[in-house]
Design a protein around this nucleic acid. Structure first.
Length: 428
RNA sequence: GGAGAGGUGUCCGAGUGGUCGAAGGAGCCAGCCUGGAAAGUUGGUAUACGGUUCACACCGUAUCGAGGGUUCGAAUCCCUCUCUCUCCGCCA
């Protein structure tokens, strides 16, 4: 959520900023609502004050054994007026907060303007794109041998955009999870955390998926009000919701392996082949809760933490900073990491690292007491993939393939593969 | 699933209709004390919103798990929900 004070005091500044992400803020409507709110609130509070003071007088009079009937009569008439003022006020406030919840975050000044991903700015390119002396296959062709990656089976069990993995592929997938968790915990200073895969609406509102993006989520039927998490960013970040954190407990750095569920509404016909875009996929996430003044440094570090996995795996990638038109709802600045996929002859997103500044913290009411000023302030939250496991699997298969269709196991993964150096070998 | 007990400020904890934003304690901050510290001692220490103000600040309103109700007045009474704990049942 945006700072309501800023929105009130300088709506043009906010509107200008949101223009960067092609969001048009209706300043006039908002200001009119605000003005009305102010008027009704003042009137309501005046009435409340009057009622309170008369009620106190009644209490006093009664204690002294006086006749309170005249006082009762005088206050009774206020009741109607007060309750209608209160109703009007809460209706206006509800309307305002409804709008506030749908406003995206303001972007950092370094975020480039732009319409879509074509306008993202390249930050750096790392590693060499492999040069094959044969026509490289994509991961579907490579791993479908013996049905080790079986989309038909997935479709039969659930529908399109599901997969069944077996044998060496399933193990490689698990090995990637292990490598990622071990790296983030052992080298990058994260604490491993394991969280619910089902959450309630309030939690999703805290991180910004609700109320605006419900169609992207899977919601469970029944009275529980459960949604399946689209990313563990949601439950992990919300572990600090509603808390007054000790300032010296920050930064909090969590890494979490989870399954993620996305409806992929609006992605019809996009990435229909293979494991790039599934309804269910696994991800190792990084989440940081930091002091405000540290969040942009933390974003740089977190991006490097994501990159550290790609470096270990020897995969070529590039880092881009998302332009205003491509950046997510809650983020103030986002780096995407794109890995080279020979099967697509293109770089494809494998991680997204965002600084949400105080946007989520304000929604969640996650705060610290600043020890220097004594003031309460919101923490800053960051999240990033470290990495998307399914897409990393795709990248390993496609980048390490050999002419005969077998795939070399990157050295960093071999300890997790019982020392196995090659998979998908065709029996001679 | 059944029975019971609870949810109060940063934390612990008192408070069953009125002067309670809330006793007391811990923590934290400041003053005194001290060569310095500890101890002691005095004071301060919630959040949000609104109003007045250049500002310091002051005033008002709301907030005792959440929402509704009763009442002139609710932390306190009633209803619904929710979470935690204990016991029983069931269960990976």
């Amino acid at each position: 959520m945006l700072d309501p004070k800023l929105l009130r005091s300088d709506p043009e500044l906010v509107a200008d900023n949101l223009k960067t992400r092609n969001f048009s803020l209706d300043v006039g409507t908002l200001q009119a609502l605000e003005e009305k709110r102010k008027k009704v609130q003042t009137r309501t509070e005046d009435l409340q004050r009057e009622r309170n003071s008369r009620s106190k007088a009644i209490g006093k009079a009664k204690a002294q054994g006086e006749d309170i009937q005249p006082l009762l009569d005088s206050v009774e008439k206020m009741g109607q007026e007060l309750s209608s003022a209160e109703a009007e006020l809460s209706a206006i406030q509800e309307e305002i907060s409804g709008i506030m919840l749908t406003l995206p975050n303001m972007v950092h000044e370094s975020v480039p303007p732009g319409k879509d991903e074509a306008d993202n700015i390249l930050v750096r390119t790392v590693g060499d794109v492999p040069d094959f002396d044969f026509d490289p296959r994509d991961h579907v062709d490579l791993a479908s041998v013996n049905g080790l990656m079986d989309f038909k089976a997935g479709a039969a069990l659930a529908g399109s955009r599901f997969v069944v993995m077996k044998g060496e592929i399933a193990r490689l997938h698990r090995a990637l999870v292990q490598l990622m968790l071990d790296t983030q915990t052992g080298e990058n200073g994260y604490t491993e955390i394991n969280v619910p895969h089902l959450v309630n609406a309030n939690t999703l509102q805290g991180t910004g998926q609700l109320p605006k993006f419900e169609e992207d989520l899977f919601k469970l039927e029944g009275d529980f009000g459960f949604y399946m998490i689209p990313t563990s960013e949601v439950p992990v970040t919300n572990t600090v919701a509603g808390q007054m954190l000790a300032a010296d407990s920050l930064p909090l750095k969590y890494t979490c392996h989870s399954v993620c569920f996305r409806s992929e509404a609006g992605a019809y016909g996009k990435d229909t082949r293979g494991m790039i875009r599934q309804h269910q996929f696994e991800k190792v996430e990084m989440v940081q809760i930091v002091r405000a003044e540290q969040s942009y440094d933390a974003l740089e570090q977190m991006t490097l933490h994501a990159e550290s996995i790609l470096k270990k795996l020897g995969l070529a990638y590039r880092v881009v900073v998302l332009c205003g038109g491509d950046i997510g709802f809650g983020a103030a600045k986002t780096y995407d990491i794109e890995v080279w996929l020979p099967g697509q002859n293109a770089y494809r997103e494998i991680s997204s690292c965002s600084n949400c500044v105080d946007f989520q913290a304000r929604r969640m009411q996650a705060r610290i007491k600043n020890p220097d000023t004594g003031k309460t302030e919101f923490v800053h939250t960051l999240n990033g993939s470290g990495l998307a496991v399914g897409r990393t699997l795709v990248a390993v298969l496609e980048n390490y393939q050999q002419a005969d269709g077998s795939v070399l196991v990157p050295e960093a993964l071999q300890p997790y593969m019982h020392g196995q150096q090659v998979i998908l070998e065709v029996a001679a």
